[in-house]
């Protein structure tokens, strides 16, 4: 259902040119969406649930992207720029235990980690929720989640798992 709606909306956005949309384009969009949904049916059963369509989640996701995420990304870029210019690095791979269960929450957290200060997800263990993170400037060898990504875990929980 989510894939269907996403593909239909994507097609209509690509076709839309300011005015109204002709009916045959809508028919083509719905047909293509049906084909894509049928082709993806074997992926994950979670994709068919309707709970992903709740609007409060989308508002939370937007609030996350334009709030802490954008701020973290800006900070990350100035941090990396500083390290590129001075060449001061102290890298290594550390382990962080999280309490996330949902696959989508894990994906979101991994992508957020990759784009925020000095960290890069190398491997995720799906059963236990363990992240192996490459950290460019290690401060302590056994860090907690707060040291690395701040409040992102709570945000991922809020958006996906509630």
């Amino acid at each position: 259902m989510v894939i269907f709606l996403a593909s239909v909306i994507m097609y209509l956005l690509l076709v839309w040119s300011g005015g109204s949309i002709p009916l045959n384009e809508v028919v083509i969009a719905i047909a293509l969406g049906g084909i894509i949904t049928y082709a993806c049916r074997s992926w994950s059963p979670g994709l068919y649930r309707m709970t992903a369509l709740r609007p409060d989640r989308w508002f939370k996701l937007l609030a996350f992207i334009f709030g802490p995420f954008l701020w973290g990304m800006t900070k990350a870029n100035f941090d990396v720029a500083y390290r590129v210019i001075t060449g001061k690095i102290n890298p290594g791979i550390v382990r962080v235990q999280t309490s996330l269960k949902n696959v989508y929450a894990m994906t979101m957290l991994a992508n957020s980690i990759t784009l925020t200060p000095g960290t890069l997800t190398v491997e995720v263990d799906q059963e236990s929720g363990t992240y192996y993170i490459h950290w460019i400037n290690i401060k302590n060898v056994e860090p907690s989640g707060k040291d690395i990504y701040g409040s992102f875990e709570d945000w991922a929980k809020k958006v996906v798992e509630e």
Binding site: P91, G92, V94, A110, N111, L115, T121
Partner: peptide, 29 residues
């Protein structure tokens, strides 16, 4: 972009390239 970066990092680690640095938890595990 971040997904591709994650895939490359994982592939590099699985193909046996050791990171330069002071600690490598994943290899120890």
């Amino acid at each position: 972009n971040p997904t591709a970066a994650h895939a490359i990092a994982r592939a590099a680690h699985k193909s046996g390239i050791k990171p330069i640095g002071i600690v490598d938890k994943l290899s120890e595990e």
